[in-house]
Design a protein around this nucleic acid. Structure first.
Lengths: 214, 214
DNA sequence: TAGATTGTTAATCGATTAACAATC
DNA sequence: TAGATTGTTAATCGATTAACAATC
């Protein structure tokens, strides 16, 4: 499959399509037209067809899209047909919360270990997955094929840990620290800035309240 | 302050400006030009000036922007000059993780209570904030001024709980459930779909690996 | 075949970048 | 005053929507 230069906007919509198609599949729906799907998702049918056609023609004129087929194909595009081993750095509340999400595993994301600096965490396991100490990390990375590291640690530590991970071959970081990571451009960084999200919410509240005051 | 019709793209960048300005402030930097800030943030100076001028002229020709002033003003735009009471529905790992983020409080987001269905949680407190049972929720909402509800519960429960919250006057929802919420349009919903984020990361890994294979 | 719906081109809309006059 | 840098207009670029011929 060859699809370079697809816009970020399109990519960011794929997981949502995947989610809706998964729901339809569960409901036993066999086929759906871009028009019907557009109504469910509150987007235009045109956008759905444009988005999908970046990756190939998955539909059929006069019929629509086969739900199961499209679901599988989007899964492949998203790389969900392969397993991805990952580790979590920082076994605090958020790290443990991620470790407990069994649903990631169903999508092929396999948690291999957590790491922390707190000695009281040593040997503790979450869903059978052990928490190791940070000083074991380098060796662990050398002996295991790890693709993704989730960073759930304070901002102050995140930058140095990220550098260390990259030095040890990690090529993808899922960053929850409240800071940007400036890493070599072949390293993929996906950040979840929870406080940014909360501030956006707050902005919208303030704006609405202004409107009401009139 | 009057600023309707500002694009979503601009809004989503404000928290990032705020973060960088906060860092500069801590470093003791007094003023910064759009050009210098653009280099730090890896965006164009033009975009910074355009973004800010949606809300007013915060800079001065020949001088640049006063860091402290701009930081404060963006804070006001984001509604961080006021307190926002919130509750967390679902005191599982993620709910507890959010409850433990003291940094939200520093931005004016005050956690008033958590709620859960699990009777073993009853009376447990996080940072002194009690977990209450779901059947106390309606009364609690009537007796307290709550602006925001964070939903950290399974998809299956999220939709009905959201409806109930709205029926009891909640006007802003921070949604962590893996589902979209279709609520009246005066209700603000900000969703954090962790699995979507992970899939985006996975897409980028797959695309890069394809490139390497050649 | 007739009807439905895609894939795709063209038109529109919006967001980003460039340029520069205004001005501190 | 001269230099720097904003605020803002104009130009470009990209993304979304509309339209429709192709085709199942």
């Amino acid at each position: 499959m060859e699809h370079r230069g697809i816009s970020r906007a399109v990519i960011s919509r794929l997981p949502r399509y995947y989610r809706y198609l998964g729901d339809l599949l569960e409901e036993g729906v066999e086929r759906i037209s871009s028009n019907d799907l557009s109504k469910k998702m509150h987007v235009t049918a045109s956008q759905i067809r444009q988005d999908l056609n970046n990756f190939g023609g998955f539909g059929q004129q006069g019929y629509g899209y086969n739900v199961k087929y499209l679901y599988t194909e989007i899964g492949k595009i998203l790389g969900l047909d392969k397993n991805h081993n990952f580790i979590i750095i920082g076994a605090g509340n958020l790290g443990q919360a991620l470790a407990n999400y069994a649903s990631f595993e169903r999508s092929g994301f396999i948690l291999k270990s957590l790491f922390d600096v707190n000695p009281r965490m040593e040997g503790v396991a979450i869903r059978g997955i052990p928490i190791r100490m940070m000083d074991e990390l380098e060796e662990f990375l050398q002996q295991n094929e790890i693709e993704i590291a989730a960073l759930t640690l304070p901002k102050s530590k995140a930058i140095e840990v990220a550098d260390m991970l990259v030095a040890n071959g990690i090529k993808a970081i899922w960053n929850f620290a409240h800071t940007d990571l400036n890493l070599p451009k072949d390293v993929i960084v996906e950040s979840v800035h929870l406080s940014d999200s909360l501030m956006t919410l707050s902005y919208n509240i303030s704006r609405r309240n202004e409107g009401n005051k009139k």
